[in-house]
């Protein structure tokens, strides 16, 4: 029983990381129908920015977190402007390949500068473990939960209450109509990339802190799994991404806890395929019938 609860806690922590990355995926997909494969690498860049800020400039953790988020939102906007915007009206595969190219570029440019070996992420504050019975809740778990839920609340506010959020929803619903209504589509897409990238950066910093180790290829698997989380929840649907992330995180933690950690990576894909076959638009997705 304690083991189960312990794994649940680990799973929720991991799941909220997936959720943060998945939110960026789902927002970008919702607005330009692109699987932004470079998104996982923005998460990696975020982790490295915070790493340098903390270990070289000795900034406190939260300052590093915020600067990393700002830096990555800028990076996200630049990537969109340079690599995706010119291809907006092309075959979607072209943009997908470009996204893969950008992903390689970020990974290997980073690797060129910091070398491939993992770096130890500086522990920037003391750990307190709360023990209830045999269940240990570390302050890292709590911090991850607090930060990621705060960010999700802020995102919900932005999307539902602000003008930018309204234009984001309008553009993802119908780009041409939104443009005719006077919405600056380019600006809105940039804003989407900025917000999504900053969430990914936050996830990167949190993971660095949680596992204490970062490397240039750390974004590949979490990026892919976050995308799966977005698909599971229903891609393009913001609560779906958070929901999918938590489902995936908890499932993985339970599988590892049951002693099948070798199969952990396959579990995400099995869940994905089952969902796609049973309900192709994801758990929260609506079925759309093609008009004939």
């Amino acid at each position: 029983m304690e083991i189960l609860i312990q794994q649940l806690i680990n799973g929720i922590a991991l799941g909220s990381i997936y959720a943060l990355i998945a939110l960026g995926y789902t927002m970008v997909y919702g607005i330009i129908q692109l699987i932004n494969f470079a998104h996982g690498d923005i998460y990696m860049v975020g982790a490295f920015v915070a790493f340098f800020l903390i270990s070289i400039f000795h900034l406190p953790f939260f300052a590093a977190l915020i600067i990393a988020m700002l830096a990555c939102s800028l990076l996200g906007v630049i990537i969109e402007r340079v690599a995706y915007k010119p291809l907006r009206n092309q075959n979607r595969l072209t943009a997908l390949i470009t996204a893969i190219g950008v992903s390689f570029f970020l990974e290997y440019t980073m690797m060129y500068f910091v070398k491939p070996d993992p770096r130890a992420f500086p522990a920037s504050f003391k750990l307190h473990n709360i023990t209830i019975g045999n269940v240990v809740i570390s302050s890292k778990d709590i911090l991850i939960l607090i930060i990621s839920f705060t960010l999700m609340l802020i995102l919900t506010y932005i999307v539902n209450r602000t003008k930018t959020g309204k234009s984001m929803r309008a553009v993802s619903f119908d780009k041409d109509a939104a443009q005719l209504m006077g919405i600056d589509v380019n600006k809105t897409i940039s804003a989407t990339f900025a917000i999504g990238s900053s969430l990914a950066a936050a996830a990167g910093v949190l993971v660095g802190m949680y596992y204490g180790q970062i490397d240039p290829l750390m974004g590949i698997m979490p990026g892919l799994k976050a995308f799966i989380a977005a698909v599971i929840g229903g891609i393009g649907i913001i609560p779906g991404a958070a929901f999918g992330g938590l489902i995936l995180g908890v499932t993985e933690a339970l599988v590892s806890g049951a002693g099948y950690s070798m199969l952990r990576d396959a579990v995400a894909f099995v869940v994905l395929i089952l969902i796609l076959i049973i309900k192709p638009t994801g758990i929260l997705g609506k079925n759309i019938r093609e008009k004939v």
Binding site: A83, P86, L87, Q90, N91, T94, A95, I97, T98, I100, G101, V102, S103, F104, F105, E107, Y108, T109, M111, Y112
Partner: peptide
């Protein structure tokens, strides 16, 4: 890999088809 990815991005941007 850096050059490879740049080649990839450049070709896609200038010859999208």
């Amino acid at each position: 890999m850096v050059v490879y990815s740049l080649v990839l991005i450049t070709v896609m941007l200038f010859r999208p088809g």
